[in-house]
Simulated assay, not measured.
Amino acid sequence: MGKRRLEDALKKIEHPTKVVYRCFELDPSMPRDVDYNIYEKLSQKYGMSIEQAKSNCRNMEKSAKESGLDFRFDTMVLTNTFDAHRLAMFAKDNDLMQAMTERLLRAFYTESKHIGEHQTLIELAVEVGLNRDQVTEMLSSNAYSDAVRADEQEASQYGIRSIPYFLINKKYAITGAQPTETFVQSLHQIIEQDRLNQIESEDGGLNCDESGCELPKK
Results as ranks from 00 to 15, higher is better:
residue 211 S to A: 09
residue 212 G to Q: 09
residue 153 Q to E: 11
residue 208 C to Q: 12
residue 6 L to C: 01
residue 118 H to P: 00
residue 17 T to A: 07
residue 159 G to R: 07
residue 218 K to P: 10
residue 70 D to P: 00
residue 182 T to W: 02
residue 34 V to S: 10
residue 86 R to Q: 01
residue 193 Q to P: 00
residue 75 T to D: 10
residue 25 E to P: 02
residue 184 V to S: 12
residue 117 E to D: 14
residue 81 T to Q: 02
residue 9 A to L: 02
residue 13 I to C: 04
residue 192 E to F: 12
residue 203 D to L: 13
residue 175 T to E: 10
residue 57 C to W: 03
residue 47 G to Q: 07
residue 17 T to C: 04
residue 69 L to A: 08
residue 53 A to W: 05
residue 101 T to V: 14
residue 190 I to W: 08
residue 24 F to N: 09
residue 155 A to F: 04
residue 16 P to I: 02
residue 47 G to K: 06
residue 134 Q to S: 15
residue 127 E to T: 09
residue 59 N to R: 13
residue 156 S to G: 15
residue 195 R to M: 04
residue 179 P to N: 05
residue 97 M to A: 11
residue 176 G to D: 12
residue 176 G to H: 14
residue 99 A to H: 08
residue 168 I to N: 04
residue 211 S to Q: 12
residue 33 D to H: 11
residue 142 N to C: 05
residue 81 T to F: 11
residue 206 L to E: 04
residue 168 I to L: 14
residue 36 Y to D: 06
residue 195 R to I: 03
residue 198 Q to R: 11
residue 44 Q to D: 14
residue 176 G to F: 07
residue 214 E to W: 14
residue 5 R to V: 01
residue 152 E to G: 02
residue 153 Q to T: 13
residue 89 M to D: 06
residue 23 C to P: 00
residue 169 N to D: 15
residue 44 Q to W: 00
residue 181 E to Y: 09
residue 37 N to W: 03
residue 85 H to C: 05
residue 208 C to H: 08
residue 130 L to C: 07
residue 199 I to K: 14
residue 173 A to L: 11
residue 152 E to V: 08
residue 167 L to C: 08
residue 87 L to N: 04
residue 91 A to S: 09
residue 148 V to K: 13
residue 47 G to E: 09
residue 120 T to R: 02
residue 192 E to T: 12
residue 29 S to M: 08
residue 43 S to R: 03
residue 171 K to Y: 04
residue 143 A to K: 14
residue 105 L to Q: 12
residue 184 V to G: 06
residue 85 H to I: 03
residue 119 Q to G: 00
residue 218 K to M: 05
residue 136 T to A: 13
residue 38 I to H: 04
residue 127 E to V: 03
residue 188 H to I: 14
residue 113 K to L: 15
residue 159 G to D: 05
residue 147 A to H: 03
residue 159 G to Y: 07
residue 24 F to V: 06
residue 11 K to V: 00
residue 82 F to C: 01
residue 146 D to N: 15
residue 94 N to S: 07
residue 81 T to I: 12
residue 3 K to E: 14
residue 131 N to W: 00
residue 205 G to K: 04
residue 106 R to K: 11
residue 66 E to T: 08
residue 216 P to W: 08
residue 92 K to M: 12
residue 204 G to V: 08
residue 54 K to H: 12
residue 32 R to Q: 11
residue 9 A to F: 00
residue 200 E to T: 15
residue 77 V to P: 01
residue 45 K to E: 15
residue 124 L to R: 01
residue 78 L to C: 05
residue 196 L to K: 15
residue 49 S to Q: 05
residue 91 A to T: 05
residue 33 D to A: 04
residue 58 R to C: 00
residue 29 S to T: 13
